[in-house]
């Protein structure tokens, strides 16, 4: 197990945060714009995709996941996979003829 014993404090510069923030705002702008165009079922797919990209940046930079140990990353994947199972397996029922 790669659990480091001592704390390495990563200092992230203000500038980086501002950069990420601008990116997030840009993505928000894109979502709002795209939602105005009717793309059928793609609309929600695109909206969710952009939301996932935004979350990725928030997780990695604002929440420092990028600088955490592997254990944390395994943890978060476990949690997300569990949620996807709960969501996906429910649709074994709903997305087929009942």
């Amino acid at each position: 197990m790669s659990e480091h014993q001592h704390e390495e404090s990563h200092v992230i510069e203000y500038g980086n945060y501002i950069f990420i923030w601008l990116g997030l705002l840009a993505f928000t702008g894109i979502t709002v714009t795209v939602s105005g165009i009717d793309l059928g079922n793609w609309t929600i797919a695109i909206a969710l995709f952009i939301a996932c990209v935004k979350s990725w940046y928030v997780l990695n930079y604002f929440m420092h996941m990028k600088y955490e140990d592997k254990v944390f990353k395994i943890f978060i994947v476990t949690a997300l996979v569990t949620f996807m199972i709960f969501l996906g397996f429910t649709f074994w029922d709903y997305s087929f003829v009942r």
Binding site: W92, D93, F96
Partner: peptide
């Protein structure tokens, strides 16, 4: 164990796939 919950609901009228 987290993949099998709906076996408590076989009479509920789920889809056959489920």
């Amino acid at each position: 164990g987290s993949l099998v919950w709906a076996h408590h609901m076989f009479t509920a009228g789920m889809s056959d796939t489920a």
